[in-house]
Design a protein around this nucleic acid. Structure first.
Lengths: 292, 292
DNA sequence: TTTTTGTCTTTTATCGACAATAGACAGTTC
DNA sequence: GAACTGTCTATTGTCGATAAAAGACAAAAA
């Protein structure tokens, strides 16, 4: 097979969710827009919905006949894009497994391991190389540079430069800029989670990403915003792997965020700088502790 | 054909140059080291040298029989790696041609244009995307973001942050660090070029890259050093295309470099910061002028 | 006249294949 | 016994092929 129809299956599943609330479906272009796919895929979905007896479809009329049952959905693991699968598998290898710096990375081996072609693995590695964890020897293998203490220090050094600058430019945003409203929403979630910290502390990781990305975006600089991808992926996988003291860590970080947010609101650059520095310093400590 | 033997041809040509000075060639591993290729390729080269009657080869003895003639070399254009070919072709497209921001980029079209397969084009685009000039729409085309004024401003903003920090850490390098010797060598070339500015001003571009890279490297931060790739490629292709006032521009930049180098030598951070700022400001102006 | 649908073409994502190149191992030579 | 060569295997770089997905265009419907 040349390509898995994961786009179709994933969009189909999302379409079933939308089906729950309506008696009939909108036009093909509109559906395509809502699901983020082309009309070709939409028509594939409609065809399948009809086959399963979920709708009656005749040109413009798409009448819902019954509600979807669990067995109508495609299994979740068939909806993952190939690159997502490779990413997970690769990160497990280099974070969880005893991956020594300097180790060789073998495209063919990874491909066989996952059961896919080498092309996709190559493309993943090329994309991944910008994170600075691997390096290519031309005409030969890749080398793992490793998730080391140096890596963490270099990463956080740049992060601190970028975030400090972004935070300063945040306070210069006009009052009607949507970022302020986003900030309010994000602040509210902080309070919600803190109120039930024992039950919800695991939601911090995602919130953390949203908050810092919002700050970085105010720099209006593509290089700064793009760099945040590296932070995201490192923290994302790293925290999946290292969960010691997660509750305390997250509670503390939430408090620091609230300080930081208050500082942004004050629009006082000196105060922002101080709150930002304090939070980033403790984030760096946390990261370093879990490495060494 | 699955793959051009450009590595072989290029190494063969370089080997012919080395041949000029010796009566016999060293061992296979040693040759491989000198040329940066594997023993397999070395043996290919030796075989070819023997076929052409350039050497007599018997196990350890590789006696040079005659000096290479021009027709012994492979044509230069057969020694370019595919990715270098794609890069040149692509940069010509987006810098020289009237490439509007927002334009779609079509893998298949580029591949047909150059007469190669799509895989290599895809891989090039993925690698190139980290420069922030193009962006992928998943399952669909790439979009050219364009070499615009915003791009130049975002690029120089980060460059200034990084270089300032690197320059400051440069003065902290111990006196025996090789960077100081490199700096001396680079400074000397500045004087050489200035002494014959009319004849040699075109050599500035390469010198500029060497100098700034040396500064960036003293940061010992892979993200800062890697970022310099973007600067390099942008300036490299940009100056190939825009040559107005090159002589005056370069002369001025050379003087600024000399100030900057003197400041580094003084090891006075305040003086370094000032000289660095001044030079980067004028570099930014130059870049901006040639865009708008 | 604008939106929707039917149909058809083009492009992307992925695979398998194969030559170029790297690299491993054992026997050979100094 | 250290380095070199002969031979063999494994991996990378690139191509062509193909299903999935996107998208163009004209006919049909509102």
């Amino acid at each position: 097979m040349a390509r898995q129809n994961t786009v179709f299956k994933d969009a189909f599943n999302r379409c079933l969710l939308q089906l729950a609330n309506t008696a009939s479906l909108p036009s093909e272009p509109e559906l395509g827009n809502a699901l983020g796919v082309s009309r070709t895929t939409v028509r594939g979905i409609l065809t399948r919905l009809e086959e399963l007896g979920l709708i009656r479809w005749n040109k413009r009329s798409k009448t819902v006949l019954r509600q979807p049952k669990p067995e109508d959905y495609y299994p979740e693991d068939e909806t993952d894009s190939l690159s997502a699968i490779i990413e997970r598998s690769f990160m497990r290898r280099i974070l969880a497994g005893g991956a020594e710096p300097g180790m060789q990375i073998n495209e063919l081996e990874i491909a066989r391991d996952i059961g896919i072609g080498t092309t996709s693995v190559r493309e993943f590695l090329i994309r991944f190389s910008r994170f600075g964890l691997i390096e290519k020897r031309p005409n030969s293998h890749w080398v793992l540079k490793g998730f080391t203490r140096e890596f963490a220090l270099e990463l956080t050094e740049v992060r601190e430069m970028f975030e400090l600058r972004s935070a300063i430019s945040f306070v210069a945003l006009p009052a009607e800029h949507p970022a302020w409203a986003d900030l309010t929403r994000i602040e509210a979630v902080h309070h919600d989670i803190l109120a039930d910290i024992d039950g919800r502390y695991t939601e911090f990781s995602e919130l953390d990403e949203r908050f810092h990305l919002l700050v970085h975006k105010s720099s209006a600089n593509r290089f700064i915003v793009d760099f945040y991808d590296i932070i995201t992926i490192v923290f994302h996988y790293h925290y999946q792997w290292n969960k010691t003291n997660a509750r305390e860590r997250n509670a503390r970080a939430l408090e620091e965020h609230l300080d930081y947010i208050a500082a942004l609101r004050s629009r006082d650059p000196a105060r922002v700088e101080e709150a930002c520095r304090r939070h980033l310093r403790s984030a760096r400590e946390t990261l370093l502790q879990s490495i060494a």
